[in-house]
């Protein structure tokens, strides 16, 4: 059995010093890995990135992250990414990583994803170039997610996103903004490639539990929603357990 701790939308700023770290320092008692589902900073500034790495530094389990839209606001997402990578956090954007945890291999395909909406109320590559570009970004992220999941030859496969792949986990959000919270193409990629669990954030007022049309469990781990420093999900209850120590092999697909 592997234990996955996950949270998104922690929105670390200069004013949140030490808010999460005390909870995370004992993570190895509860989980084998921590997955961060984007919006790790509030506006993606250098000072916020510095505050973030003080929260995440030297945790007792491996940490894998994707960025969210807030991490892009200061137009320097690479600054946030590099700050995290400098302290050993694995940051994924259209990439995968394979971890060995508790005697099992776990493949994680990570992507921020993007919006566009869901069946019956979604955008299309139609009309103005700006609209076509919007949907094209979502389609490209989804195609890469599918290819990355297919590439994983591991005991378990997990998709780590910021935007929602299904509208189940948006229940509670205003319908008018669903198109800015996620896209059906991401869910289609999950169902096409298959995986054991999909995690996302972004929808603060949504619902924790959902499922793709093909039956893949989806969990919205936005911290304002779960109101906890992390949620824990276990996979493979029938398989042997183990320690929280892990090592990883990083892969990047260029599809």
């Amino acid at each position: 059995m592997i234990r996955i701790a996950a949270v998104g939308d922690i929105h670390v700023g200069e004013d949140t010093h030490g808010r999460l770290r005390p909870h995370w320092l004992t993570l190895d008692q509860h989980a084998d890995v921590l997955l961060l589902a984007g919006d790790l900073t509030n506006v993606g500034s250098r000072k916020e990135a510095d505050a973030l790495i003080e929260e995440v530094r030297d945790l007792p389990v491996p940490v894998v992250a994707v960025l969210g839209n807030h991490d892009y606001h200061c137009d320097n997402p690479l600054g946030v990414r590099h700050a995290l990578e400098a302290i050993g956090v694995i940051v994924l954007e259209g990439e995968t990583v394979t971890l060995e945890l508790a005697g099992c291999t776990v493949g994680i395909a990570g992507s921020k994803g993007f919006g566009g909406g869901f069946a019956g109320a979604c955008g299309h590559k139609f009309g103005e170039p700006e609209m076509k570009d919007f949907i094209r970004v979502t389609e490209e992220a989804s195609h890469r997610l599918e290819a990355n999941l297919r590439s994983l030859q591991t005991d378990y496969r997990v998709a780590l996103l910021h935007y929602a792949p299904v509208k189940d986990t948006l229940a509670g959000e205003r319908l008018e903004i669903h198109a800015f919270l996620g896209a059906y193409q991401l869910g289609e990629a999950l169902d096409s490639a298959g995986c054991d669990l999909a995690l996302h954030g972004h929808a603060h007022h949504g619902t924790e539990k959902g499922m793709t049309p093909g039956g893949i469990p989806v969990r919205n781990v936005a911290m304002p929603l779960i109101k906890r420093p992390y949620a824990v999900y276990t996979l493979g209850g029938a398989k042997a357990g183990g320690s929280g120590a892990g090592r990883h092999q990083r892969e990047t697909l260029t599809t």
Binding site: H23, H30, P217, A231, Y233, T234
Partner: peptide, 14 residues
């Protein structure tokens, strides 16, 4: 936002 403890794990897909 006030945070509570992490809570019970959920077994997914069992």
């Amino acid at each position: 936002l006030e945070l509570s403890e992490s809570g019970k794990p959920e077994a997914v897909g069992d």
